[in-house]
Design a protein around this nucleic acid. Structure first.
Lengths: 189, 189, 189, 189
DNA sequence: TATGAATGAGGCTTCATTCAT
DNA sequence: AATGAATGAAGCCTCATTCAT
């Protein structure tokens, strides 16, 4: 692994564990077993490290969204698929999420980054809802706010999972909660 | 106002405006027009100030919950009443909420405090759902997780309102979203 | 002596001895026997200390210039008096001068400060020359540049005295040099 | 141009532009488009680069002095010639002068180098004055200090020109000033 | 010769906290 | 109770220099 990647990986771990402020350049260097000066050969500032982490995360989510859209266009993406792939994504990127959730209130760059993230997720959900309404599988609901509600639900789930692990996971029930609100009362009766 | 309250009020404003880390004891003293030393006559540490703010907030919410319970026991609390009174509470205590949301990821004391807050809200919603199921006005849903889902929804709404004010308010739609998921398909009509 | 003055005096000594860059905040604190943090209770930055030194020096020269002007108006100020009082001033403020000479090429604030200093000295000399020409004790020479030449001569003398003390003092000869250039060829002869 | 010369030339530009301290080895390498390590293949240290620049400058002045002496021995060097050739030299080597003036107060090596420079100039002027006195074209003045006064005047002129370019050039008047002080009251009566 | 990543000492500054008055 | 000067640990960052390739 290149030194730059080592720094990035170590910083990601540390920030998600102790927060941005408590990861000091000195700590970071020690844990990555490099000198403090080396950090500045690869990054302009401590905040710059975070910026890189956020950018990478951003790209990862864009890839997921793209994949979802492709399947949506083919008509093979169910509500469960959509929510399920998001849960997987969030689980797989827990550290990044924790970083985002833990710094958006402190740092302007994260606030902006998370704002973009929310928007992207909302747009994706919105498009899904629009399509569902067209094909008659979902209720007709106000698209924009409902997309936001779903995105918001996801963040909340992650937050609780990450910061209050002692609380039982309630993802499944959340999915049910949403299904009841969005699915048409099963025609077939 | 006593000096202690002055410090508390000033600190609350500052923390919600600039965050816990960026409120320094020096800033605080200047803005409250007292000396830095005076702070330590009333509080043990900077964190101790936060602790007091959190405790006060805690009590305020307990009062609201108590009020809700009283009305619930009388059978005069509709879903709209419940959610409405919470929206009012959150609006009226925006500064406290912002402090909680902005520090739980950094400080153990807030993490615990917010944990309790979530639990309390969850319990209240849970009780409401149980009663609704009994009286036949609400669907039968898994109580504990659904209470959590509702609490979670509230926090999310506040968060977006506080940190991304440029996003349109979607409280009303969120309420609708929940109603659809929880209300019985209006019987016989 | 107040702590602020102690810092100022110590810094003046150190800067004139080793230069602005080589006086570090750490050194300064050690030599003044205070903690590094204390420096920042009294000054905004390291450069701010220098600023204070320069301002004080500025005022001191303005006082001298004022005194000279008063005597000039009374008609009791000979060329020897004028140059003599300047030599005394420069000798008495050797540390300040060394600081000015040693930092104007590095720091914008000193460059400006020294610029003002030169101007002030030039103006004073210029006025003296004008008066001398009027009263017929001095040659008529271009005022502005000649004032500058005299100011310049002074700075040069100080510089050599301060940085090359091994070179014999030549102030007296410099005064003679100027007299020959400025005095009317003694009438009476 | 050899790499060594490239480094030297680039360093000369940079030091005269931003000063010795603000030219970092990193900057220098970037501007010269070489690697930082390469610098240390050609020079022992950052100061060593300056040493080379100073040495080269020293030689250049020695050449000028030599030329002047040759003409002096032939008896074809007027005061105007002498001063004029010095002005030309200083103009042509403005970067070197700026380096010397900007570092003698900080660095021992420059202080020594400039000391030698002053001495050399003084000696040359002194010899010229001696000859002038012998041939009866110049007043008899104390040689050593007067030589120093002239050298000093030159440095002052350069300094002001380089650091306060907003001040009008007063070289011509300076020459006049010196002529008045040194020339015999034109016999020719 | 040349590279450029790595080093580590040290610089300036901030800030929660203490203490004599 | 209140003051505010003083502390000192710790934070971020810079930079001349070294060294393996």
């Amino acid at each position: 692994m290149s030194t730059k990647d080592l720094i990035l990986a170590t910083a990601k771990d540390m920030i998600s564990e102790v927060g941005f402020h408590k990861m000091t350049t000195s700590n970071l260097a020690k844990r990555a077993d490099i000198s403090e000066g080396t950090i500045y050969r690869h990054f302009e500032s401590k905040e710059d490290i975070l910026q890189h982490i956020l950018d990478t995360f951003d790209e990862k989510y864009m890839t997921l969204a793209e994949t979802c859209r492709v399947r949506m266009d083919k008509g093979t993406l169910s509500l469960d698929d959509l929510l399920g792939s998001h849960f997987s994504f969030l689980d797989a990127n827990a550290a990044d999420i924790k970083i985002v959730l833990g710094t958006y209130s402190i740092l302007e760059i994260t606030r902006r980054s998370m704002g973009r993230f929310i928007e992207r997720m909302r747009t994706l959900f919105e498009d899904f809802l629009a399509r569902g309404a067209e094909t008659g599988t979902l209720l007709e609901v106000p698209l924009r706010p409902t997309g936001l509600i779903l995105a918001n639900m996801f963040f909340g789930l992650m937050r609780i999972k990450l910061y209050w692990p002692e609380i039982d996971d309630f993802s499944m029930e959340a999915v049910e909660f949403c299904r009841r609100s969005l699915m048409l009362p099963e025609a077939g009766i």
